[in-house]
Design a protein around this nucleic acid. Sequence first.
DNA 1: TATGAATGAGGGTTCATTCAT
DNA 2: AATGAATGAACCCTCATTCAT
Lengths: 212, 212, 212, 212
Amino acid sequence: MEQRSPRSSSNNAKRERTRARLTDAALRLMSERGINATSVSEIAAEAELANGTFYLYFRDKAEIVAAVCQAVTRAMHDDMSSTRLSLEDGAARVAFGTQQFIEIAAAEPVWGRLLMSAFTEFGAFKEDVAHYMRLDVALGIEQGRFSEPLDEFVIDAHLAILRAGVSARLAGGGPDVAARAAEYQLRILGMSVAEARRIRAANERKAASSDR
Amino acid sequence: MEQRSPRSSSNNAKRERTRARLTDAALRLMSERGINATSVSEIAAEAELANGTFYLYFRDKAEIVAAVCQAVTRAMHDDMSSTRLSLEDGAARVAFGTQQFIEIAAAEPVWGRLLMSAFTEFGAFKEDVAHYMRLDVALGIEQGRFSEPLDEFVIDAHLAILRAGVSARLAGGGPDVAARAAEYQLRILGMSVAEARRIRAANERKAASSDR
Amino acid sequence: MEQRSPRSSSNNAKRERTRARLTDAALRLMSERGINATSVSEIAAEAELANGTFYLYFRDKAEIVAAVCQAVTRAMHDDMSSTRLSLEDGAARVAFGTQQFIEIAAAEPVWGRLLMSAFTEFGAFKEDVAHYMRLDVALGIEQGRFSEPLDEFVIDAHLAILRAGVSARLAGGGPDVAARAAEYQLRILGMSVAEARRIRAANERKAASSDR
Amino acid sequence: MEQRSPRSSSNNAKRERTRARLTDAALRLMSERGINATSVSEIAAEAELANGTFYLYFRDKAEIVAAVCQAVTRAMHDDMSSTRLSLEDGAARVAFGTQQFIEIAAAEPVWGRLLMSAFTEFGAFKEDVAHYMRLDVALGIEQGRFSEPLDEFVIDAHLAILRAGVSARLAGGGPDVAARAAEYQLRILGMSVAEARRIRAANERKAASSDR
DNA sequence: TATGAATGAGGGTTCATTCAT
DNA sequence: AATGAATGAACCCTCATTCAT
């Protein structure tokens, strides 16, 4: 109580660690059985914490759902960024982003499955993913690569395809699902079949050359 | 014993009416708050029936969910069929089907919202819709109108766009959402932007000329 | 309404038949799944009658249970009486009665199983069976064949052995179970092992010579 | 974190106390009205706990039934053991065990009544009691005291007599019921009336000299 | 901060019984 | 006499949340 700063800093670190234990546990469980089907007690137990401790870190169940979804979104974002942002062609970015997103979801099925759950059981989450998508699409439009306008619905359709891709991939679809999803998105944006295919092919080369 | 038929017919009528009260109540509630979030007691209460009465008409909750989804599917099907089947071009059929589906969902938002719920919370239902979709897509492919193969994923993508269309429309999107969704589907199938637009335009004319 | 007598007699016949349908149904079901586990609706359905009809014949569930138990007791009694009553030795009667009782229960497992159920789930029934038992034991005592007094407990013990015999026989025990149960009862009554065995042997001969 | 042990010990103490409240309540109620006729809510209410609390201590109703039966079995066992095992004569042991069992059941009618219920409504329990019985009977057989073989049915008959004894005693039968039940068992096993009576008499002396 | 015992509303389901027809 | 639709209390069980320690 006297030495405020050091103590509270260590406390903060501890707080952070405990919080992480909870979100990790929640991620694991919700990914496996779905968001709604995961109970607060199960989360606490998985985190090796007492039932009531949960409420020292989250106001209610909704709050941890939000936190976990955000965490996964962020983690996926971290796993992606490097190559994608180096692409100057908006269309290539859109395609590469989608393809990578799906591949990461397949490589980390815990993330992927949570996302699928979040899409259907936790509305607020959608916006998180849509954000990045919008940026890439906007870039492509600016560059005159796409004929479609940038509005709500085009993003909705994009997201829908992304979801379908993740879902199919998690359900055992081969890796070409990712590339196809990307290609479909380009077509939706108004790109010709030939051009979309070219970008897809280029991306598949890039994806193959990057380690993961 | 003599007046068998009238009696049992009146009883049947009553049974039918009560059953309808239940499915109607279920439709209303599930449409509003989602399938899982609607409890059997709520349904019974909304139907102004005692809790236990529910189980005289449905073995369990799953059964009424199935019944309601089936009823809505059937109602939508009835509202659609006539014109669509008269179209000989598979591509036109695909587009017309999607557009009409979305418009009906918008005209009967109670149906539409239930469908959205059913897509995510009642797996069996998806297949019902996918079935008709597959037929139309197959026709188009046979006619050489599409370049994409007819496989799982292409249907998944199709359904995803349909869902996005219904959802956007229910959320307040204008009527062009329906036409756009149809157009996107055609593009996904590998049709050129111009051709897809042509079919969309033709469909919009047809839709306008049919009363509903 | 005018011709009271003929009508009501035919009605009585019909009433009786319907009542029998219900008790038969109850017997079948309760025998299979136990008394408590059989519901009134199931009984009515098995009797091909409407739910509510049941209450025109029985005040409540307890009443049909009583009726069924009584009916079975009576049926068993009818199946037994002839030979047993011709035995003049009380000890032989006791043994023969028990043995036959168990054998009939094994031959008509529907009866047997109901009895087992009734013993444990329907107290009042016990007295029905005890009645006949008491008579035979009393006779033996009068004849000086047994050393034990005729009181509550000796009858309880008797019944307990009878029950154990029926139960073991229904559970797959061989036919010697019936003879052994009878022998045990004689021993309980104070008869010497040798004498009890003699009577058992004599009974087994009688049982073999009677068709059923 | 430092005072782990005291804290958790106090918690354990509380847990133990609450659990005991529940088992006690269950014992009382099940003893009065039977096992099946006692509902979880009644148990919780009798224990002055909320409904849901029950499930923090027992997975389901079956578990508390098992726990209560086990507890009573154990309590009875603890109340018995000392003298019985000191008897070297298997026959004496059999008789003494039965007599004591019945007497304890009479002295603690709550236990006794639960046992009666358990015999008929909780199958698993029967085996618990049969186990000890078998040991004693086997000993007597080994010593050549009994002429009957040690098989399923002889144990069934034994149990049946024990049950009848407990039941009669609880229903108001005098203390000689216990001794008589024991005597009957010996007779069933093939011991002569005189010898059985001798052992009974010896046991009654022992029982009188033991405090309870 | 952390615990974990306790809560109680709510979920799905069954069933003896009543009553209008 | 017969029907069978309707009732509603009761049952077992789950879970988000609170609170004394």
